[in-house]
Design a protein around this nucleic acid. Structure first.
Lengths: 145, 145
DNA sequence: GCACATTAGATTGTGTACAATACAATCAGA
DNA sequence: TCTGATTGTATTGTACACAATCTAATGTGC
């Protein structure tokens, strides 16, 4: 009973639940992130900088799958909040070095409880979560490779 | 060797690949959708209307996980392109009835090949795709329930 | 050295997302 | 039947996303 237009039904699409799920999960983060004055995009940016205190915009963009058009205003915002500094590199003035500040680093302490709080709101077993993780990265590797 | 801040690493997050994957997949749609003059949001809106020619904004929003703040400009755009009409209901003037036009319905023909073209760009087996689908809807059911 | 290509960020323009608010239409209870 | 609550959509304000373009700095071949 397969019809010509079956693949155009929302229910038969893989991209739609991916899109909807991403939005809904990000929305769940919002109240938790408000407590530390970060948006979701600012949060993942800080996550990268908590691991590596200093990077340029291009490296950040590669890690986050974001371009300068998105990152520039995000980084300016984080700078205005005092969580990072932005400075041109001495060796190559084209590079803008993003460096985490003491306040930015201190934020990690408060952020540490967020992943746990969020984990509870996704009703997957750890096996399912792992499966999902593997599948998503399999797509990401292909799509961006 | 688990450390206090491990869960804050981007690599250990489930939300991040979800977010990144969604964006990258939507981006892959862009060139295909441009051929029929639709954005991704407009495309999923049309998908709903290809199945059910007439609905109000609230029903559309429930299907698409979008609110009126997002849908209103999208629907006005689709109207200006001639793919839908927007009319207040006679019975209850609060309801805005979105109806697909002949041009909008005709677009389905051209859109029919898009899912196939996209399927090839995600390198999952049909079993994996099905697994992913199930996992995403399991989260969606919980998150929105 | 110098023209030309390349590179890294910033800017611009369009289009979402969504919380909060506004507002008109309808409903519901005393 | 009046009044206050509810409902459905629109508007406003903030924050992304990303393509396209711009600009300044650097690299390169000759």
């Amino acid at each position: 009973m397969t019809e010509k237009y079956d693949s155009l039904k929302l229910k038969n699409q893989l991209c739609f639940p991916l899109y909807a799920c991403s939005k809904e999960v990000v929305r769940r983060y919002k109240p938790l992130l408000e407590e530390i004055d970060l948006t979701y995009t600012q949060y993942i940016t800080m996550m990268v900088l908590w691991e590596k205190q200093e990077m340029n915009v291009k490296e950040l963009g590669a890690d986050l799958y974001l371009d300068s058009g998105t990152l520039t205003p995000v980084l300016k915002k984080l700078e205005s909040k005092g969580f990072i500094t932005r400075k041109r590199s001495q060796e190559d003035e084209r590079n803008l070095i993003v460096h985490i500040t003491r306040e930015g680093a201190a934020l990690k302490e408060q952020a540490a409880e967020i992943p746990d709080k969020m984990g509870g709101c996704v009703n997957l077993t750890s096996e399912e979560a792992d499966q999902l993780y593997q599948l998503l990265y399999k797509i990401l590797d292909r799509v961006t490779g």
